[in-house]
């Protein structure tokens, strides 16, 4: 129950961070010698896929604890929206996306010169507890009258759901295409739908609020999560340090405990 408080604080920080991260045309590649060994410091804005909320909130705290004077602010949202925002000049220092495709759009704009995959995730069916509709497999979602929520097509979890349905040759007509994976989860938790296609990690994060129906690995769809420091970041050294931290054993352990698989 402490999460909302953290979010409020994060939102307040995000507002104050907007003013400090002005437009910067310095290229991070030119001065590695001066900043290479310097300790990470300052404010860092990380744009991350909604599905990373729990894992990255924990990683952010650990990173702050390991680097005094650093404050990390997260902007969690649909990967595609974040990519659009970064392309439009949003002051992001780091982008962690739920798919290679959304990272491609940022890379195509020349803003993500180097990227690393840091985790993988796969899909799971989330159902409301005490549901009157019995769901034990993907095929059950195709039955008439079963209400299914998925992410919209542009978001990695939506594209993944589509691939999942095609791969398993099931015809599923969702009742809603939500903005991001957390919105799908919310509709499941409220019991407004009988099932939602979310990530394995979301089912774990939701705890007792949803019941997961596992999709066997050979029927499932896996997506890679790339991370990149954004070119033109006002705090490039710290951005690189954060990326390194996510890839480090400490970061990987946090991701693993949130249910992510290794890259």
């Amino acid at each position: 129950m402490r999460r909302p408080v953290i979010l409020v604080v994060a939102a307040a920080l995000a507002l104050s961070a907007c003013s400090s991260a002005g437009p910067s045309s310095t290229s991070p590649g030119t001065s590695p010698a001066t900043s290479g060994s310097a300790a990470a410091q300052g404010a860092l804005t990380v744009f991350a896929a909604s599905s990373l909320k729990e894992a990255f909130t924990a990683i952010g705290k650990a990173f702050e604890a390991a680097n005094r004077g650093v404050s990390v602010t997260f902007n969690f949202g649909p990967s595609s929206t974040l990519a659009t925002q970064i392309g439009a000049g949003a002051p992001a220092d780091v982008f962690a996306s739920a798919s290679g495709k959304t990272m491609d759009t940022v890379a195509a704009a020349g803003l993500a010169p180097s990227r690393s995959n840091f985790a993988t995730n796969s899909l799971e069916i989330a159902t409301p507890p005490a549901s009157s509709v019995a769901i034990s497999s993907l095929a059950d979602l195709a039955k008439p009258g079963v209400k299914v929520a998925v992410c919209q097509q542009a978001v990695p979890c939506g594209a993944g759901a589509q691939t999942l349905f095609t791969k398993n040759s099931v015809q599923i007509k969702p009742v809603t295409e939500e903005v991001d994976v957390k919105s799908v989860l919310a509709k499941v938790e409220l019991g407004e739908v009988d099932a939602g296609i979310v990530y394995v990690t979301d089912v774990q994060a939701a705890g007792a609020k949803v019941v997961g129906v596992v999709i066997p690995a050979d029927h499932n769809v896996t997506n890679k999560y790339p991370i990149a420091a954004i070119k033109g970041s006002a705090n490039a050294a710290t951005a690189q340090a954060f990326v390194a931290f996510v890839l480090s054993p400490a970061g990987q352990a946090a991701l693993a405990s949130a249910g992510f698989a290794a890259p």
Binding site: Q152, P174, V175, T176, E178, K187
Partner: peptide, 8 residues
Amino acid sequence: AGNLPGVT
């Protein structure tokens, strides 16, 4: 009402 082309 959610988001579904043609319906909502």
